[in-house]
Amino acid sequence: MSREMGLTFQQYLTQLRLARAAQQLKTSGSAIETIAFASGFTSMRAFDQHFRETYHCTPRAYRDRG
């Protein structure tokens, strides 16, 4: 996978989880913590860190932007 996509499996999986979480943030009123855990993250710290690196804002700011 890393040759074809330029990502390790873990990086690819994290991207999928973040995309799912971002979609849920836009379309549901669920708590951010609930969305993070449902997307496969095991801690809010990890979710927040990866989300900020990818989307350049907090999950709450992303949701507020709509």
Rank of each mutant, 00 (worst) to 15 (best):
R20C: 01
R63E: 07
K26T: 08
A38K: 12
Q23N: 10
R17F: 01
G40H: 03
T58V: 07
L13G: 00
S39G: 06
D48K: 12
Y62S: 06
I35T: 01
Q15H: 13
Q23R: 11
R45T: 11
Q49N: 11
R3M: 13
T34I: 07
E33T: 12
T34N: 10
G66W: 07
G66Q: 14
A19C: 05
R3S: 14
D64W: 00
A31M: 09
L18P: 00
I35C: 00
Q10A: 14
Y55D: 02
F51S: 03
Q15S: 11
E33A: 15
A46I: 06
Q10W: 02
M5N: 14
R60I: 03
G29V: 00
R60N: 10
R17G: 00
S2E: 11
R20Q: 11
R20F: 02
I35R: 00
R45S: 13
I32M: 11
R45D: 12
A46L: 09
T42F: 09
E53C: 06
F51G: 01
S28W: 02
M44W: 03
T27N: 12
G66A: 12
R65D: 09
R45N: 13
S39T: 04
F37W: 06
A22V: 05
G40S: 09
H56Y: 06
R65T: 06
A61P: 01
T54Q: 15
R52Q: 13
R52M: 12
S2G: 05
S28F: 03
I32T: 14
Y55M: 07
G40I: 01
P59K: 05
R65H: 11
T58G: 15
S28N: 08
G29L: 03
L13I: 10
S2Q: 09
P59H: 05
S30N: 12
A38P: 02
F9C: 07
M44P: 00
H56K: 14
M1Y: 03
A21R: 02
